[in-house]
């Protein structure tokens, strides 16, 4: 694994993204930027369009309008395989693990290593340990079925799984929604590991404390539109909630305004 040393490679840039489902305008004219080595949180109320934005990035839905560039090159992402080919991995809310398979099998599912035409279990297990150790992940054994792991450990496996293909951008849709305090801390820790590896991380969460703990930048969506692009260091949780609910003026919060707004 190589760690990117340049602080700010512009990985993803979305401009004017719109998407409607019949009469529902899920997204209108949304912009989003992601740089290497940063965690961008996307927050917003239920139905604000967060999942829709992620689905466009991961190739589940095409956008109706707007441009996506990846590493400065305009791209179209028409299916999940193309997204993965570009280096965009998505960890869905419902995990997408096979409970009956062990950790190694899940990590390598669909891209198993082979030797003499058969599965190379030794190489896969060894590289699984390497990966989990790099992530500082707490997994008791890589040879138990995923069904025997706790919710937090399963989330860790799901995240580690996304790294096997060596992606540039990792998207996590509510990774801590079903977890307790200790397990949440573990996943947040892991997200920091991802940033240290130089990945661009997109985090969707309803939990403002989690977002403040781990992200560098917060992009607020409200009713399918941008309603703020905030540097975490500059804002309080009240201001974030204000932007989510529409209580504060979006234009005031737009861009990386200096600490003038902070009390």
């Amino acid at each position: 694994m190589t760690y990117s040393t340049q602080p700010a490679e512009h990985l993803l840039s979305l401009r004017g993204i719109s998407k409607r489902f019949g009469a529902v305008r899920a997204l209108t004219d949304v912009d989003l930027d992601v740089y290497a080595g940063e965690v961008v949180a996307i927050v917003g109320d239920n139905g604000a369009g967060k999942s829709t934005l992620v689905k466009i990035l991961s190739g589940v839905h095409p956008q109706d309008a707007g441009e996506i560039s990846f590493e400065g090159v305009p791209v179209t992402i028409s299916n999940p395989t193309e997204a993965r080919g570009l280096g965009i991995e998505t960890i869905y809310q419902d995990l997408s693990l096979c409970d009956n398979l062990d950790v190694v099998s899940n990590l390598w599912l669909g891209r198993e290593l082979l030797t003499n035409g058969g599965l190379d279990e030794v190489a896969m297990e060894q590289q699984s340990w390497t990966l989990l150790r790099e992530l500082n992940a707490r997994i008791p054994s890589v040879r138990v079925p995923v069904a025997a792991l706790s919710g937090g450990q399963r989330q860790v496996v799901a995240i580690a799984r996304s790294l096997v293909g060596d992606p540039k951008v990792v998207i996590l849709d509510e990774p801590t929604a079903a977890l307790g305090v200790a397990q949440t801390a573990e996943v947040l820790n892991l997200i920091e590991r991802l940033r240290e590896r130089g990945l661009g991380v997109i985090l969707i969460s309803h939990n403002i404390a989690d977002v403040q703990a781990v992200s560098d930048r917060i992009v607020v969506l409200r009713l399918g539109r941008n309603n703020g692009d905030l540097r975490v260091a500059d804002v309080t949780s009240e201001m974030i909630i204000g932007a989510i609910t529409g209580a504060s003026d979006a234009s005031l919060l737009r861009g990386t305004r200096p600490a003038a707004v902070a009390r």
């Binding site: 419902d94 997408s96 096979c98 398979l101 099998s105 599912l109 669909g110 198993e112 599965l119």
Partner: peptide, 24 residues
């Protein structure tokens, strides 16, 4: 137990959606 096909059989039986998303 030793082939990719076998692994995908178990994966489909465990979680079809996960298998599909894994590119199987």
């Amino acid at each position: 137990t030793r082939t990719r096909w076998g692994r995908s059989v178990y994966a489909v039986g465990g979680n079809v959606e996960a298998a599909r998303r894994a590119g199987i």
